[in-house]
């Protein structure tokens, strides 16, 4: 009961935030509200018993997305020009659409209904078989890493594509070696501000440590490659903000980041191909070891590492691509 009330409260806030994002003309404010929107969404996911998703939404939606948006805002504009009024036709069409969708909800299974079809088919099998087939407690990781590992492979390549896409688009006209790749040596971040510097330096190692914990604890608790990659990337971004772009790039040069992106994707695909070479199907981890259960565990750890490396490298490459570009 109390959960439902709390859920309704959070969802109402969510709607209000969404309206505010659309209405405000200051883009900076809109982006910050968007971050709040994501955080509220993450809280909602947590109430709905989706711990892994909540962690991901908080790290990626509220964290990384906001940073990328801010990076882009610094290069474009702070304010939106007033849109012309008289968009009532759009509003009307969309209201009808929303009404239609609300109408369709009345035949849907109610929230939390244990008899809903989604809880009858496929999902119970995962919950039953995971302890036997993989011997790991977190079913989400099992489904993500093995049962639907092919989707996750696709997802890694989506991130990979986003990374090369941003590098490709932003390198136009400047050349890869100049412009994009040379951060402003004058940028010193917050080095002269004592409080952020001290606190930040204190925090960065712990953030990275936490990221590693999330990475390797993913089989037992909420977490895994995506979350870990995003968290470690946030740690490095914090370092870049404190010490300036240049020193962050000294610590982790672009070539290393690109290598991470490529290496992670190759590691994942390589594990899949290894399964093929050892006589199984693509992404079949059971054949990796003599004991299929151990094989599954090894496979999942390896591909999660691949995911983490690629996500971390991609997000950092994207961040640097925006941050090092000079506004023109």
């Amino acid at each position: 009961m109390i959960e439902v009330v709390f859920g309704v409260f959070l969802l109402t806030l969510l709607v209000i935030t969404a309206v505010a994002v659309v209405r405000t003309e200051n883009l900076f404010v809109a982006v910050m509200l968007m971050s709040i929107f994501s955080l509220l969404m993450a809280a909602n996911f947590f109430i709905l018993d989706a711990a892994d998703v909540a962690l991901t939404e908080a790290a990626i939606g509220a964290g990384i997305t906001t940073v990328i948006f801010l990076g882009a805002l610094a290069l474009t504009a702070q304010r939106e020009k007033r849109s012309p009024n008289g968009r009532f036709a759009t509003l009307g069409v969309i209201s009808v659409l929303a009404a239609l969708m609300i109408w369709a909800t009345f035949d849907k299974p109610r929230l939390g209904d244990p008899d809903a079809p989604v809880h009858q088919h496929v999902a119970p099998w995962y919950l039953e078989q995971t302890p036997e087939l993989m011997g790991i407690p977190n079913v989400v990781t099992a489904v993500l890493g093995s049962f639907r590992g092919y989707d996750t492979l696709g997802e890694v390549f989506v991130v990979f594509a986003a990374c090369i896409g941003v590098l490709f688009v932003l390198s136009a006209g400047q050349g890869l070696d100049r412009g994009l790749f040379a951060p402003d040596p004058e940028s010193e971040g917050l080095r002269h501000h004592l409080i952020p510097k001290v606190v930040g330096r204190l925090l960065v190692p712990f953030i990275v440590l936490f990221g590693l914990y999330v990475q390797f604890h993913g089989e037992y608790g909420p977490g895994g490659g995506f979350q870990a990659g995003a968290i470690i990337a946030t740690g490095v971004i914090l370092y870049a903000l404190l010490e300036g772009e240049a020193s962050a790039l000294n610590a982790l040069p672009r070539s290393v980041l690109l290598g991470m992106v490529v290496g992670g994707a190759l590691l994942y695909t390589g594990v899949g191909v290894a399964g093929m070479l050892l006589g199984g199907n693509f992404l079949d981890y059971s054949v990796l070891m003599s004991d299929p259960v151990i094989g599954q565990q090894v496979g999942i750890v390896l591909i999660e590492a691949g995911v983490g490396i690629t996500v971390c490298g991609s997000l950092l490459s994207i961040f640097h691509a925006f941050a090092a570009r000079e506004a023109r």
Binding site: H121, V122, W125, Y126, Q129, S146, F147, R148, G149, Y150, G275, G280, N281, F282, L283, D284, Y285, S286
Partner: peptide, 9 residues
């Protein structure tokens, strides 16, 4: 994919 039977994999 991954040798898991159809609706599960």
């Amino acid at each position: 994919m991954g040798s898991w039977p159809a609706p599960y994999g």
